[in-house]
């Protein structure tokens, strides 16, 4: 490859998370370049979601450093991460069922007319308009934005969550198994949204179990195994067998007759 120097946007050094005795994430050194789309793969319980939660400020790491745009960050809450320009779509959809689409898109960062603390008046008009724009930008069509989320299909809900993240993300977006519960059509739509992000140059970390999807969408594949980073592979220089052998920890060399995929 050409020797173009791309900036590192996100780096973790020795990132570790223990839940009591459970070593969910152990000494993870991870790196993401500007404009890069990468996948995180690994078996159930490998620590993928745990990693996402440390980066997005949902939890505080037990040890290790998170460097974002070269600066060491300490996120005390998801708000801190968001203010830094990091958005996420979590595995368990972080949506409020009884609220409508604009309320969900703007949840926790409502537009208001003037600041009266918690009693600030909501600018529903602006939120509706901005939601429409956000959905348009991601190509999502939802007929009635004032329906509560509970009355929508799984695909629509997922699209709302992704549009929310995609429309606010300025520097980095993380998606934890965004298509796990979706049908073929919805999956295609989500993948299109991801391609749109690539065109916009917004870096992405995609957690997925779907290797076909991973190979279609990303530049690099980071493999997690039992809380540790087992390795990183460049998507165009590897194949499914190699990825699977890293996931399972079975010695490379067996991969010729692997039948996992």
């Amino acid at each position: 490859m050409a020797g173009e120097e791309r900036n590192v946007i996100l780096r973790t050094e020795g990132l570790t998370k223990h839940y009591g005795g459970v070593h969910a994430l152990e000494d993870a050194d991870f790196e993401l370049l500007e404009g890069e789309h990468v996948a995180i793969v690994g078996d159930n319980g490998a620590g993928k979601s745990t990693f996402v939660r440390q980066i997005t400020g949902v939890e505080r790491p037990t040890a290790g450093k998170i460097l974002f745009e070269g600066r060491e960050m300490e996120f005390h809450s998801p708000v801190d991460a968001r203010e830094a320009g990091i958005e996420a779509v979590f595995q368990n959809l972080a949506l409020a069922d009884d609220l409508d689409v604009p309320s969900n898109i703007f949840l926790g960062r409502e537009e208001t007319y003037f600041n009266l603390g918690p009693f600030s008046f909501l600018n529903e008009k602006k939120m509706l308009q901005r939601s429409q724009e956000a959905l348009e930008k991601t190509g999502v069509k939802i007929p009635n934005l004032h329906n509560s989320i509970a009355n929508m299909s799984g695909g629509q809900r997922q699209c709302v969550a992704i549009s929310r993240a995609a429309s606010f993300a300025s520097k980095l977006i993380l998606m934890d198994e965004p298509t796990a519960a979706l049908g073929v059509q919805e999956t295609t739509q989500v993948e299109n949204i991801i391609r749109g992000l690539k065109e916009r140059g917004i870096p992405l970390i995609l957690v997925s179990h779907n290797l076909r999807q991973v190979f279609n969408l990303v530049d690099k594949i980071w493999v997690f195994r039992r809380g540790r980073i087992a390795g990183m592979l460049e998507a165009d220089k590897t194949d499914g067998n190699e990825v699977v052998s890293l996931i399972t920890g079975v010695q490379s060399g067996v991969h010729e007759n692997a039948s996992y995929i």
């Binding site: 809450s77 998801p78 368990n92 972080a94 409020a96 069922d97 009884d98 609220l99 926790g108």
Partner: peptide
């Protein structure tokens, strides 16, 4: 309303 709907979501939304 958000907390009553989904406390976890409310927390994750900041």
């Amino acid at each position: 309303y958000a907390i009553g709907s989904n406390e976890q979501a409310a927390r994750m939304s900041g």
